[in-house]
């Protein structure tokens, strides 16, 4: 039972962080605070992915030692690992057979996905912030309830204007 809990405690902690992020996004009316909550949420999703790729006893996925013979050598030194290649098509990916590794490495795929997602995350965050700056310039506030209040007033005023115009045309 204790083992079961310990093996999943990381997931639970990450879910807790994710829920705090969701709460910030949900409960606060301030748009900048909302975006900060969103990026908190995003970071915990990254944490979750990277946790899934962890292999017990593994190390960072940078080949070393016997797994990378002639590491750092020039092109001439690469003959050492030609034995593991099999003749195949030109197409990438089916040129080689999987080899047994000496060292244990963690899973690389979540790292790659999250690495690009972080950079795209900051880019989209800045688009959101740019929109908030424009909202502030248009409405004079960045509280979402005040923004919707102003929207409502504008809609009512337009409605009244149309009514007035229709009445004027009818008379």
């Amino acid at each position: 039972m204790l083992e079961f809990i310990l093996e999943r405690a990381n997931y639970w902690a990450i879910i807790g962080l994710m829920m705090i992020g969701l709460y910030i996004t949900f409960a606060s009316g301030n748009l900048i605070k909302r975006l900060v909550g969103l990026s908190t949420f995003q970071t915990s999703v990254f944490l979750f992915y990277v946790t899934l790729g962890k292999v017990a006893g593994g190390t960072a996925p940078i080949l070393f030692g016997a797994d990378a013979p002639a590491h750092g050598g020039g092109y001439g030194a690469e003959e050492a690992h030609h034995a593991v290649t099999v003749p195949g098509g030109q197409a990438l990916g089916n040129a080689s057979a999987p080899v047994e590794l000496v060292n244990t490495y963690s899973n690389v795929l979540p790292h790659v996905l999250m690495l690009t997602a972080i950079v795209v995350g900051v880019a989209t965050l800045s688009v959101g912030l740019a929109l908030i700056v424009r909202i502030r310039e248009a409405y004079g506030t960045i509280e979402s309830d005040e923004v919707s209040e102003i929207d409502l007033e504008t809609a009512l005023a337009q409605e009244a204007e149309i009514d007035q115009w229709l009445n004027g045309a009818g008379a």
Binding site: Y75, E78, T85, G88
Partner: peptide
């Protein structure tokens, strides 16, 4: 497909 850049066989890495 980088392998095609210098038209190398598989196993060459330039």
């Amino acid at each position: 497909e980088y392998q095609a850049l210098f038209q190398e066989p598989p196993g060459k890495h330039k």
